[in-house]
C-alpha cells in the first residue's frame, strides 16, 4: 500500500509539474481515525497530501464530473473507474480531458461494523496488510480485514480499474462468485408483507439529508425530482411514504447504471444500507440483459438502447 501511495504522489506531482492536468483529484488523510477526505491538488508540493487506504470509500468519479472543461487526473479504484466509464458514456466527462490513475483495490472497510465490534469511539486505526489495528480509549484489537470488508467490496468482481492511463500497483486477483446477489435472494425469499416490512425498517431512521444521493456519481441531475417544486412530485417531510418514494425513485433512476460502489452507504450518517434498493436493479440488469454497468465505453447501457430481442415479457 505504501508503494502505491508513493506512486500516486509521484505521478500526480509529475502531471501537475508538466502541466498535463490542472488538478488531481484524490484522497487525503482525514482528521479522525478511519476518515479520509476527497481533495483536489494543484501543485507538485501538495501532491504529498495524497493518500490511499481501506478507508477511501467514497467515489471520486462524483467529483470528476464537476470539473467540466478542465484537464484533470483522478485516482480511481475499480468502482471509481467504472463510474468514470459511465460518465464518459453519458457524456458527463470528455475522455480526452481525463487522466485516470488506477489503483487495484484491496477492498474498503465497513466503518459501522468496526465501530460496533469495538463498542466505544475509535481513537486509532492502522492497517498492516490484512490486519486492522483498531483502538478505543480502553481497548485495542487486531481485526482480520476480510471479516470487516464493506458488503459491496466482499462481493466485488472488479477490484482492478477497467479503464486507466496508469496503474499504481500490481493487478489484484479477481474473485469468482457462485452467486453475486445472495442478499437480493434473501429478500426475494420473503413474502410480500415480509419484503415490505424489511424496507419499512430499513429506512425508519432516514433523515433525508440526501447524503446517499449527493455521494452518488450517477446523481448529477441539475434539479433532483425531490427538489423540484413546480410541480412538486413528493412531500418533503418525514412522512414514511415520502421517504420511501425518494429511495425507490432514486434507485430506479440508477437502473442499469449503478456499479455498486457503495458510496451511498458510506456517506449515510445513519448507516442505512440503501443498496438494498439498487442491488435488485443491478441483478435484474444482469439477469435480463447480461449487463454490468461501467465495464466498457463502447456499449450503450440497456435502458438507453433499443433491441428487437428486448426481454419485454412484463408487457401484456
Amino acid at each position: 500500500m505504501d508503494t502505491c501511495i508513493q506512486k500516486i504522489r509521484e505521478i500526480a506531482g509529475d502531471l501537475l509539474e508538466k502541466g498535463e492536468v490542472e488538478r488531481v483529484i484524490g484522497f487525503a488523510e482525514g482528521s479522525i481515525p478511519m476518515a479520509t477526505s476527497p481533495v483536489a491538488i494543484s501543485t507538485k508540493e501538495d501532491a504529498q497530501k495524497l493518500c490511499f487506504s481501506s478507508t477511501c470509500g467514497l467515489n471520486l468519479a462524483n467529483y470528476a464530473s464537476k470539473e467540466k472543461g478542465k484537464k484533470i487526473a483522478v485516482v480511481a479504484k475499480g468502482c471509481d473507474s467504472r463510474n468514470l466509464v459511465t460518465h464518459i458514456v453519458e457524456n458527463q466527462i470528455d475522455r480526452d480531458n481525463l487522466y485516470i490513475i488506477g489503483v487495484p483495490c484491496p477492498g474498503m472497510v465497513d466503518k459501522f461494523k468496526i465501530a460496533a465490534e469495538m463498542g466505544g469511539e475509535i481513537t486509532g486505526f492502522e492497517e498492516a496488510g490484512d490486519t486492522l489495528i483498531v483502538s478505543t480509549v480502553d481497548d485495542k484489537k487486531e481485526l482480520n480485514k476480510q471479516d470487516y470488508l464493506r458488503h459491496n467490496c466482499s462481493l466485488c468482481t472488479h477490484k482492478n480499474p477497467v479503464l486507466f492511463d496508469v496503474l499504481v500497483g500490481e493487478e489484484v486477483e479477481e474473485q469468482q462468485l457462485d452467486n453475486a446477489y445472495p442478499d437480493v435472494d434473501a429478500i426475494e425469499a420473503l413474502t410480500a408483507d415480509g419484503r415490505w416490512k424489511h424496507f419499512e425498517e430499513l429506512t425508519q431512521n432516514c433523515i433525508r439529508c440526501y447524503a446517499c444521493r449527493n455521494a452518488c456519481p450517477l446523481c448529477y441531475c441539475p434539479t433532483c425530482f425531490v427538489d423540484e417544486s413546480g410541480p412538486q412530485w413528493v412531500g418533503k417531510g418525514q412522512d414514511k411514504t415520502d421517504v420511501d418514494t425518494f429511495h425507490f425513485l432514486r434507485a430506479f433512476h440508477c437502473a442499469g447504471r449503478c456499479t455498486d460502489c457503495g458510496a451511498c452507504v458510506e456517506a449515510c450518517p445513519m448507516g442505512i444500507n440503501v443498496r438494498d434498493f439498487t442491488r435488485k436493479l443491478n441483478k435484474d440488469a444482469q439477469d435480463m440483459f447480461g449487463w454490468e454497468a461501467g465495464l466498457t465505453i463502447d456499449k450503450r447501457p440497456p435502458l438507453d438502447a433499443y433491441s428487437p430481442d428486448d426481454p419485454n415479457d412484463f408487457i401484456k
Partner: peptide
C-alpha cells in the same frame, strides 16, 4: 471542495 452538500 470535498463537500457534497448533503444536510448531515
Amino acid at each position: 471542495f470535498s463537500c457534497i452538500n448533503c444536510g448531515t
